[in-house]
């Protein structure tokens, strides 16, 4: 087998070098190689949603995405969500204010142990951005791929409804691409 050179993944606006093993998922590259541990490994089989990230602005499961297939894509993790409002292409800045969905999760007590939370928030941002918030049923259906063993579901839905309502009443409107 020919030796493959390391390749580059663009994560939260920064180019990062990743080892070229074809079996490595984006999830393992983030956590094991790049020390970006905000994205969680729950089931590692696409059944829990804890590893939800955004790839080119769309919610994706990092555990089922091979890193070699993601080069050239814009990958956004929970660490890069805060400043995504200002500039979707900017590097992560931990001093930036919380993303509105992060703030709403705190406001609504939308987590207990917190292990599923980064995945919940990444899906919630997409849920609101895609306008899937016309009813709690529509939110539930959109969020059904993000399991919460602490069962904070009512609070998660309340947080999403809150941000969606704010967005609808704001003259600027809209959650920018994260």
């Amino acid at each position: 087998m020919p030796e493959t050179p390391p390749f580059v993944l663009r994560i939260n606006g920064v180019d990062r070098s990743v080892a070229p093993d074809p079996r490595t998922t984006v999830l393992d590259a983030l956590r094991e190689q790049l020390q970006l541990t905000g994205t969680k490994k729950g089931c590692d089989h696409g059944q829990c949603g804890a590893c939800t990230i955004h790839v080119d602005g769309e919610p994706r499961l990092a555990c089922l995405t091979l890193a070699v297939m993601a080069d050239g894509r814009d990958i956004r993790t929970i660490e890069g969500l805060q400043d995504a409002d200002a500039d979707g292409d900017s590097p992560a800045d931990s001093s930036a204010p919380l993303h509105p969905v992060q703030a709403a999760f705190i406001e609504h007590d939308a987590f207990q142990c917190g292990y599923c939370t980064s995945g919940q928030i990444m899906s919630a941002v997409a849920c609101i951005r895609q306008g899937r918030t016309s009813s709690s049923g529509e939110i539930q259906e959109f969020m059904s791929g993000n399991l919460c063993r602490c069962a904070a579901y009512p609070n998660i839905i309340a947080a999403i409804e809150d941000v969606a309502a704010d967005q609808a009443s704001s003259p600027q409107g809209g959650i920018p691409a994260a």
């Binding site: 696409g46 919610p59 499961l61 089922l64 959109f142 791929g145």
Partner: peptide, 9 residues
């Protein structure tokens, strides 16, 4: 079928 993440992928 599946979830929004999986259907999107």
């Amino acid at each position: 079928g599946a979830t929004q993440q999986i259907r999107g992928m």
